[in-house]
């Protein structure tokens, strides 16, 4: 049940995308997100969608796995879609239901915005699907290095992130286990009023918090016992290198963005 959440998970693989430099993947994802917001019309979607499709196909992450991660945001998507659909006025009236009217501009904006949101989510989850958490944080740390001079604790931030990411699946598994145990004791999470259901969460949340604190404590002890000290002069097992693969990916991304910008200027 709860294991269906794929957001932030890693999908094991050895594709071209998996082997890219994490720094490049992070920057490309950020660039892509910005690109999503400079899109103007239908043609610009061709560029961004084909770029995204290419990434998905090359990475060999199954579409069903990606779509499963979309489930939690269906409600948010539906809300934005409906609000845009009814609130934005302009162009021909397509549907008139008295106090609610659907106009051409409203429909267009609603569809564009919804696709934009979906693409935003897919691309950012592609980053975690194809990048091992440890690589991801290595990448972030390396990207944050220049800011160290102005007091940004790059290494500590990266370490905190990697620990957080590392424990998402563990805590999910733990939640699943505790839920099952309380179900076996006759707990009911699905029926009753909202207040009753909220109260029903207590038997899950308390054990979960306790185990999270216990794990944090154990981890801190284990790190301490191995004389962990973050920061300067630490070397890495895998140092990041920019290869021909990264060059190809960079060129592809630059072409996509350039196409968008040129198209926007021409409009």
């Amino acid at each position: 049940m709860i294991r269906d959440i794929t957001l932030g998970q890693y999908y094991p693989g050895d594709s071209f995308i998996h082997r890219l430099d994490p720094r490049l993947k992070i920057i490309a994802t950020l660039v892509y997100i910005v690109a999503l917001f400079i899109m103007v019309d239908f043609t610009s979607y061709i560029f961004t969608i084909s770029y995204m499709a290419a990434v998905i196909i090359i990475s060999k992450v199954p579409l069903s796995f990606i779509l499963r991660g979309m489930k939690p945001i269906i409600l948010i998507l539906a809300c934005t879609f409906l609000i845009n659909l009814f609130m934005i006025k302009g162009g021909d009236v397509l549907l008139d239901m008295g106090f609610l009217t659907v106009t051409e501009k409203g429909l267009r904006t609603a569809i564009f915005l919804a696709t934009r949101l979906i693409m935003l989510l897919i691309v950012s989850s592609m980053l975690t699907f194809t990048t091992k958490p440890i690589m991801l944080t290595d990448g972030i740390e390396s990207l944050l290095k220049p800011f160290k001079k102005i007091g940004v604790p790059a290494h500590e931030l990266a370490m905190m992130m990697s620990i957080a990411l590392r424990f998402i699946p563990t805590l999910l598994e733990e939640t699943d286990k505790i839920m099952k145990a309380q179900l076996a004791r006759g707990a009911d999470f699905e029926n009753g009023s909202i207040i009753k259901r909220a109260k029903g969460l207590i038997p899950i949340l308390i054990p979960l918090f306790i185990s999270a604190f216990r794990r944090a404590d154990e981890l801190a002890m284990a790190m301490e016992a191995r004389c962990y000290k973050g920061g300067d002069n630490r070397t890495r097992l895998h140092s990041l290198k920019f290869t021909y693969r990264d060059l190809i990916a960079t060129i592809a991304t630059v072409i996509m963005v350039a196409a968008l910008v040129i198209q926007r200027i021409l409009m």
Binding site: I178, A181, P203, P207, I210, S211
Partner: peptide, 8 residues
């Protein structure tokens, strides 16, 4: 379950 004390 295994380690049932974690469900208290």
């Amino acid at each position: 379950f295994q380690y049932p004390e974690y469900q208290l």
